[in-house]
Structures are given as C-alpha cells and as structure tokens.
Write a protein that binds this DNA or RNA. Structure first.
Lengths: 198, 198
DNA sequence: CCTACCGATCGGTAGG
DNA sequence: CCTACCGATCGGTAGG
C-alpha cells in the first residue's frame, strides 16, 4: 500500500508535464465558463495556446468533439477539486455538508474565471437537444445523485426535495456573485443550506 | 425608481402598435431564450422574418443595440405577462404569492421556447462585463427589488434572504424542467416556496 | 503538429 | 426597407 502510493506519486511526478491535449482542455474549461461551449471557438483556443487551428482541431475531430471533451474535463476537475477532498468526511450528513462546503468554497475562490461551469453550460444547452446537452445532463445528474445518496444515508425523508433546494441555493449564490458581484451571496446560501441540512 | 420604470414599460406595452420592429423583437426574445444573446444573429433573425440583413440591422445600428433592445422587450413582456396580472392581489403576502405563482405558471406553460429568458441571459453574460450585462443586471434587479418590497410589506424579517431563497427555487424549477424535462420540477418549487412564504 | 486552403456566415457599410 | 458589397472569422479539409 505504501509502495503503491509512492509509485503513484512518482508516476505523477514524472508525468506532471501536461500533454498538449490536457493543456487545451484546461484552457477550454476556463473559456467555456465565461463564453459558453458555443463561444468556445477553435480559433480562439488555438491562438491562446499558440497552436495552429488545424493542429488543435485534429485532437477532437469536430467542434462537438471539443465540446464533449471539455465537459468531460470539467467533470474530472470537479471530482478532483470538490468530491475527492470531501471523501474524508463520513457518509451521510457529514459528507453531504462537506460536499456543499467544498463547492461553495470553490466557487467563492473563483477557481474558474466565469464561475460555475455547470451553471454556464446548463443554461446554454438546456433547451438545445443533442449530444452536448445529453453530456451536460449526465454530468449534472451524477453529481445530484451523489448528493441525494448522502441525504438518504443521513436519513432525510425526501432526499430529492432536499437536494433540489440545496442545489438551487448553490446555483443562486453563483449567479448573484457573478452578476451582482454580491459578496454576501455565499453567506446567504450557507445560512439557508445550514438550516436545511440534517 | 424601479416601480416607475416597470409602470412606464407596462404602459408602453399597452399603447404601442405592432410594427416591423416589434415583430423583430418578439422573435428575438424567443430566439434568445434558446440560443442566448450572442447566438441571436442578425442573419438568422432576418431569415426568420423574411427581411434583408441590412434592413433588420438598420433598426438597431449594431448587434449590441439589438441585444439591448431584446432585453428591453423581454422586460416589457415580463411585466405584461407576469407583473400586471398579479396587481389584483393586495400588496404584501398575497401579491408576493401571486407574483411567484404567475411566473411559475408562465414557465410551466413554456411561453418562450427556451424557458426563462433571465436564466438564459444571466448565465450567458454574468461574467462578461459591458452594457449587455449591465442591462440584464438592471432588469433582474428591478424584479428582485419588487419581490423584496412585497416581502417587506408582508412583514418578513429578512426580505433579501427570503427572496434570495424564493428566486433560487424558481430558477431551479426552470433549469430542471428544461434540462431534465422533469415534470415535477414546478411542484417541487411550489412546495418549497409555499413553506417559505408568510 | 504544420501550411494552405475551402465555403459559409459573421457584423457591418455604401448607396439608394 | 432594399441590393451589393466588405474584411474577419467560423468549422472543417487536404496533404504533409
């Protein structure tokens, strides 16, 4: 076990230099949080990374391929930055609280230049059927299902209703923070969420 | 000031005769609810209305002019379809309840093809500074201020916190309805809001 | 990963 | 409100 984690650390250290594709997707997630997945253009992305358009294009095959890869990368970063750090808390109420806290902190730190990636792409694609909307929906559904599962473990009587309310408040905090630059947005959300959690 | 501008907009809506410009803006609000204010292109709009691009363009002078006029039209329709019908209810708790009910009904009927106009354009422009974001912010601020005023008249101790929560739930209902085609989204929101209102 | 292209569409202009 | 344009940029392709 010690050997494995050392090997993992070593291999991470050796592979820290991100691939071109990883660099592209890191920038793509940032850009999409501000400009959306349609505003994410291949030319802009290539220019930001000093690549040729066709060189960048070849990694994804189509704009839709780039959009889907960007959603996948955003989900991966979300797990790494929000879900994984909360795994130390026991399942149920403590885990649920940790997941909410982590994400509110993540948003408040303005980790992405446009705030919540899911807020941006959900509003953009929620009424535009197709593979991109499906991927957004699946990514968000996985997150909501995890929150609902923790609420169920905590013995909440109606997990879906509770998580509907909790996620509503998180999204409202993001929206108010971004649109109104309202510094109180997150404390408002934390107050309301604390009153709801078991 | 917010109240006066709402009343002014309402009276304009009642007295303005149909014109090419009005037809353009009616379609623009619909399109923007799906495609956003950037996805709203002059060529697409002209084609939908069988006008030349330059003929349509001349009404607004720039794309930004079209975007600002579209926001203004959306606000006008919002007042006509949501605010005015609620004015029969006495100020305070009944008015607040009527405003919420009206808007939830409006969204559930899917009056606009992309759902809530404010949800679409807020998420799109909330991290993109400029006149368009300012107009979105001002339109939403007028609506939230009206809700807060009714909450204050109703004797709520913290109107801002209450309306933060109420609007969060309305937006969550719209988002779930659009993204997941969740028929229960609005009943969820109504249940939660009913528990919050005085 | 590149250069060199392609047709379509973008916002916008000239002139009527 | 129109026709006839403009340069820039879009997603995408050919070929290396």
């Amino acid at each position: 076990m010690h050997e494995r984690s050392l090997a993992t650390i070593a291999s991470m250290a050796l592979t820290t230099a991100p691939s071109t594709r990883d660099q592209i997707l890191a920038r793509a997630v940032e850009l999409a949080s501000v400009e959306g997945l349609e505003g994410l253009t291949i030319g802009r992305l290539a220019s930001d990374l000093s690549l040729s358009k066709s060189g960048l294009f070849a990694h994804f095959g189509s704009k839709e391929g780039l959009q889907l890869a960007t959603i996948d990368e955003a989900a991966r970063r979300f797990v790494r930055d929000v879900v994984e750090p909360a795994l130390g808390a026991p399942e149920g109420a403590p885990r649920l609280r940790a997941l909410c806290d982590r994400y509110l902190d993540y948003l408040e730190r303005r980790t992405l230049p446009g705030g919540c990636f899911w807020a941006a792409v959900t509003a953009e694609f929620d009424s535009r059927p197709g593979p991109v909307r499906d991927a957004v929906r699946d990514g968000l559904a996985a997150w909501l299902a995890e929150l609902e599962r923790q609420a169920a473990v905590a013995g909440v009587e109606n997990p879906r209703q509770l998580i509907f309310e909790v996620w509503a408040l998180v999204q409202a905090a993001n929206s108010r923070f971004e649109l109104f630059e309202d510094a109180e947005a997150f404390s408002r959300a934390r107050t309301s969420i604390e009153a709801l959690l078991p």
